[in-house]
């Protein structure tokens, strides 16, 4: 799998969850990816909240995660 870098802070090797969440929230074909912390800051929510959303998406059977 291609290694992704956070568009904001430059964190390398974004996890599958971080890549999946960026795609899920913005666009499947997005070119820019975000680490969990930068995504939470950008969307003005807690990282815990985003982790909970990832669990929900997995429960739904979303294949992005």
């Amino acid at each position: 799998m291609e290694s992704m870098v956070c568009y904001v802070c430059g964190k390398e090797n974004l996890s599958k969850n971080e890549i999946g969440l960026t795609k899920k929230l913005f666009d499947k074909n997005t070119k820019h990816f975000y680490c969990l912390n930068c995504l939470a800051e950008y969307l003005e929510v807690d990282t815990e909240f985003l982790l909970e959303k990832i669990k929900e998406f997995k429960t739904q059977g979303c294949t992005l995660f």
Partner: peptide
């Protein structure tokens, strides 16, 4: 320029429930 699914999820993050009929749940969208 945006997908309904993205909008729905971002609204959900803010505690607002709306729907989209094209949400990807299990690989199908």
């Amino acid at each position: 320029g945006v997908t309904g699914e993205s909008l729905m999820h971002l609204l959900d993050l803010k505690g607002i429930c709306v729907s989209t009929s094209s949400a990807c749940t299990s690989g199908r969208d």
